[in-house]
């Protein structure tokens, strides 16, 4: 098991959000976490990424406990977190943002390879190399966010709302790029509100409601589940 979350409890200050959340992701798997607004999907990712320290429970990555570690240490273990708002460095150029993504990579050759890989995945970014990240459109920012996360050659990606604020066509593009990554052997845990699309592309899914895992199983099965169909798909 690459990532294993056991009985996780987390929240902000007095606000207790996640209760007893357990989930796991195998190497090479494409897993989604879906659920209504305010269910705690983003909180789950932030807790795994170390940006929030858990109240209880454990997060194991690659056989080692990582819960309670600071965010930068989790990032150095090989978990790349892509937040909803991207958290780009808006006064740096696209190129500088990508170089910052490789902050933990000491090997110049590897850095070069990763840069080439990202530019091959998102050719639009190469054309805008010297543009400031803050002046780019939503879709390009999303690509840059994913590209920056890929620069450190992560073992796993945590993606929060890849379709957030994007036009449908651009959403397709972003999902296509995640697909490419899976085909190349990557591991992804994605959080989404667009349940139909997500269950369509992922291997396995978890349904989070009111801070608890309500359902889990292969995505195709979840898409057929009466509860999911009623609550999220509107049928």
């Amino acid at each position: 098991m690459l990532l294993e979350v056991k009985n996780l409890d987390a929240g902000y200050g007095f606000l207790h959000i996640l209760r007893n959340v357990s989930l796991s992701v195998e190497k090479g798997e494409y897993v989604c976490l879906v659920g209504p607004n305010g269910a705690g999907k983003s909180t789950t990712l932030k807790t795994i990424a170390g940006l929030i320290s858990p109240i209880g429970g454990e997060v194991c990555f690659d056989g080692e406990t990582i819960s309670g570690l600071a965010g930068y240490k989790v990032a150095r273990r090989g978990i790349a977190y892509i937040s909803e708002e991207m958290n780009l460095f808006s006064n740096m150029t696209v190129h500088e943002n990508l170089l910052m993504g490789a902050y933990t990579v000491r090997d110049k050759q590897l850095e070069k390879n990763r840069l080439a890989f990202v530019y091959a995945l998102f050719p639009q970014l190469e054309g805008r190399k010297n543009q400031l990240a803050g002046t780019m459109s939503g879709g390009e920012r999303k690509m840059l966010g994913i590209g920056r996360a890929l620069m450190c050659n992560p073992k796993m990606l945590l993606v929060d709302e890849p379709s957030f604020g994007l036009a449908p066509l651009l959403t397709e593009d972003v999902f296509d790029s995640l697909d490419t990554l899976i085909k190349e052997g990557g591991t992804i845990l994605v959080v989404e509100q667009n349940v139909t699309k997500t269950l369509d592309v992922t291997d396995r899914g978890y349904v989070l409601e009111h801070g608890r895992i309500e359902l889990e199983g292969p995505s195709a099965e979840l898409a057929r589940d009466p509860h999911v169909r009623k609550a999220f798909l509107g049928v």
């Binding site: 990424a49 170390g50 940006l51 600071a70 965010g71 930068y72 990032a75 150095r76 790349a80 977190y81 892509i82 937040s83 991207m86 958290n87 780009l88 460095f89 808006s90 006064n91 740096m92 500088e96 170089l99 910052m100 993504g101 902050y103 933990t104 920056r148 996360a149 620069m151 450190c152």
Partner: peptide, 23 residues
């Protein structure tokens, strides 16, 4: 690299942590 990290922290603290910078 360190200088860029300082600039990164001033622009986005969370983003800096996400790329592995020790705040």
């Amino acid at each position: 690299r360190t200088g860029r990290a300082i600039r990164a922290v001033s622009q986005d603290e969370t983003g800096a942590q996400m790329v592995g910078i020790d705040l």
